[in-house]
Design a protein around this nucleic acid. Structure first.
Lengths: 339, 339
DNA sequence: TAATTTTACTTAATGGATTAAGTTGCGGAC
DNA sequence: GTCCGCAACTTAATCCATTAAGTAAAATTA
C-alpha cells in the first residue's frame, strides 16, 4: 500500500505537505500541489480510513440499528425501502453505512452492546429503526452523546422522523365511515409505544367524533407485522355476535394474516367484510381486490432521516432538534365496500 | 475516551501489558490480568477499531456491493433476504457489514471506485450480489487480492454461490409439460450472463428433449425484475396467432408485469393462460391464484456465502475455491392449469 | 551453588494521517 | 539597508493498539 510517506519521498517534500496538498489546504503552492497530486495518482495512492479516523475521530460512517432477529428488519419491505433511501442520501454526502449489532467481541469482556459497538467503530451518527425502543441497550445508546435519529419513535431531546399516525388512522376511519361503515374494528399491538398510543387514541377519538361506538371486543390485540397473530385476532372478530363490517389492520402484513382468516371462514372481501391495511407495501397492490391502505411516504422518511442526521453530525450547534412528522395518503384499493 | 494508556497508568503497568492481558496472550500472570480486566471494566474502557485496523490490517468488516440505483437492491425481496441471512452469519462470527458505494470522496481525486473504497475501509472480504458483473469497476474489484464471494455469477478462480438455473428451468418446463402444456414461452433478458445462458439453454434443451418446438417468437426479451418490460413482452406473446398456453417468467416481479398484461387483455389465469415465475418471493403466495414458481433457497445461499467468505478470510490457504450451486424447489401454486 | 530456563513483564518501533507551531526565504514598505 | 509580513513549507506531536525484541527476577535443573 502506498502511503503519504511514499509520495513525500517521491516528491521530495514532507508528509505534512502531502496531506495538505491532497486535502486542499491553502498553504501549498499550486505547482507543488500539482506535482503531489500527479504522484499520488500515478503511484496509486489510496487513503487509509483507519489512520484518518484515529487522528480525527470522524469516520464518515453511520451506524444503523435494525433488528433482524425473526427476519423483521431487512426483509420487511417498509424498512428495506426506508434504508434504501437513507443509504442513498448518505452515499451522496460521503457517508458509509454499517449495521450495528451485538456480534463483535470486545476481547475478554464478552460481546459489545450497541453503544460500545458504535464507539468502537467511531460512528459519526446512528439511525435506529424497527426496534424495541424499550430495550435497555437502545436506551443507553439514545442517552449517549452520539448524534442520533430514530424512526417512528421519539426519545426526549433527540431527533426523530415518523409518520403521522394520528392523521393516518383518522383518515382511514373517516374513509370507512364515508363508505357507510359504522361497525369498525381496529387490531393493534399492546406494546407501550407512542405509535400504538397515537393510533388507538386516534381511532377512538375519530369514532367518537362520528358518534360511533367501539366495544372493547372491536380492539383485539396482535403483535405488529405477524400474520399469525392477526389471523387469530381476525377469527375472534368474525366469531362475534355483532361482527364488524370493516376491520382496520395496523400494517399490511397483518392484513395478509387477516385475509387468510377471512378466506378460511368462507367470506369474500369486500362483499362480506371490508378490510384496510397500513403502510402501503407492494404486495397489497397485487392482491385481488387490491388492499386499501394508508401509504406511508417511506422514501421521504428515509431521506429526511438521513438529511437530519447528517446535519446533526456536521452542524451540531446550529441544527435544531426536531420531531419530524410526515403525513401519508390513502391508497384506495378495492377492499372496502360501499354499504 | 479511556484508552489502554489510562488503564496502564491506573494499574502501574505498561500499555503492552494491558494489550496482552485483554487480548488473552499467555505471558501475563493471572493476578495482573485480573487487575487489568477489572480496571478496564470499571473505567469503561472501549477498544478502538481504527487503531486496531491501522496496526493489524484486519477490520472485521465485510463490504457488501449491492446495486441500489433504481431501487433494485435492498428493496428486492430476494436480495434483502439473502443479505439478512448473510448478515446473520457474519454477525455471529464477529464481522460487521458495510455497504460499498461510490459516494466516498478521496480528497482531490474525485470519488472512490469500488476497489478503492474497499481498500480505504480495509474490508477483510467482499460480497458482490445483484450487480452488473460486466461493470469495469466490479471486474477490477474481482481481480484484486481481496477475498470475495459473488452471488449468481462466477468470476474465474473466485468463490461464488448461486442457484442451479439449469435444473430450475428444467424442473419448471417438465412440470408444465406434465400438466399438458406443449406451447410454452420463456421471457428472458438478453444480457450476456451465465444466468441467462444457463436458463435459455436449459429451456431449449428441455423442450427439445420433450420433442416440443420453440419458435423464436416464444423467447421474447425483457429486462429482469422490471414489470414494465415483461408486461410488453407478454402483450407480444398474447398477440401471436399461435399463442402459447403457458408463459415462464424469469422472476416473480416479471410475472407481476405479465399478470397485469393478461388481466388487461381480459384473460384469466390459469383458465385462459398459465404462468410460472422464478424466485419464490412472498407476494406470489398471496396472489389469486397463487403463483407457481421455483422457490430459491435464498436463506441457504446467504448463509453459505457468508460461511465461505469468512473461511476464505480466516484460512486463505486451506480454503478451496468453489462454485457452490444450490438447487431450488418448485412451489406449486395455482397459476398453471392442467390441460 | 552456578547455570539454565521460564515467567512476567517493559521498551520501542510501527501503522498512516492530521495539525499546531515553528522556520525559511522573498518581496515590499519606509 | 533594515524590518515586516506573508507564502510555503517542515517539524514534531498525536491518535491507540500491537508485537518483536529485550530484560530482570524467579524457578528449575544439574
Amino acid at each position: 500500500m502506498v502511503s503519504m510517506k511514499d509520495i513525500a519521498r517521491e516528491c521530495g517534500v514532507s508528509v505534512a505537505a502531502v496531506s495538505k496538498a491532497l486535502s486542499g489546504q491553502p498553504d501549498i503552492s499550486e505547482a507543488t500541489r500539482e506535482k503531489i497530486k500527479q504522484a499520488a495518482s500515478s503511484m496509486g495512492y489510496q487513503p487509509n480510513s483507519a489512520a484518518k479516523v484515529l487522528r480525527t475521530h470522524r469516520s464518515n460512517n453511520i451506524g444503523v440499528l435494525f433488528v433482524d432477529e425473526a427476519h423483521n428488519g431487512l426483509t420487511n419491505e417498509f424498512f428495506a425501502l426506508l434504508l434504501d433511501r437513507f443509504k442513498h442520501v448518505a452515499d451522496s454526502k460521503g457517508y458509509d453505512i454499517t449495521f450495528i449489532n451485538r456480534g463483535i467481541s470486545s476481547g475478554s469482556m464478552g460481546n459489545m452492546n450497541y453503544l460500545a459497538h458504535a464507539r468502537y467503530r467511531a460512528f459519526d451518527g446512528v439511525l435506529i429503526a424497527c426496534m424495541d425502543f424499550h430495550n435497555p441497550e437502545v436506551i443507553e445508546l439514545a442517552q449517549s452523546n452520539i448524534p442520533l435519529v430514530t424512526i417512528d419513535y421519539s426519545f426526549e431531546n433527540r431527533m426523530s422522523v415518523g409518520s403521522d399516525n394520528v392523521s393516518g388512522i383518522r383518515d382511514l376511519v373517516l374513509y370507512c365511515a364515508k363508505m357507510g361503515h359504522k361497525k369498525i374494528a381496529y387490531i393493534h399491538d399492546d406494546n407501550d409505544s407512542a405509535v400504538t398510543r397515537d393510533r388507538v387514541g386516534s381511532f377512538k377519538d375519530t369514532m367518537e367524533s362520528l358518534g360511533l361506538s367501539v366495544p372493547e371486543s372491536y380492539l383485539p390485540v396482535a403483535e405488529y407485522r405477524k400474520t399469525e397473530g392477526s389471523r387469530k385476532a381476525t377469527e375472534k372478530l368474525l366469531a362475534l355476535d355483532d361482527r364488524p363490517t370493516c376491520i382496520l389492520y395496523p400494517d399490511d402484513f397483518s392484513a395478509l394474516g387477516g385475509i387468510a382468516a377471512i378466506k378460511e371462514a368462507g367470506l369474500e372481501i369486500p362483499k362480506d367484510i371490508s378490510i384496510v391495511g397500513y403502510d402501503g407495501i407492494r404486495v397489497g397492490r397485487h392482491l385481488t381486490p387490491s388492499l386499501t391502505t394508508l401509504r406511508q411516504p417511506t422514501e421521504l422518511i428515509g431521506e429526511t432521516a438521513a438529511q437530519k442526521l447528517i446535519s446533526l453530525i456536521e452542524n451540531p450547534v446550529e441544527t435544531r432538534i426536531e420531531k419530524v412528522i410526515v403525513k401519508g395518503r390513502i391508497y384506495e384499493g378495492g377492499s372496502v365496500a360501499r354499504i
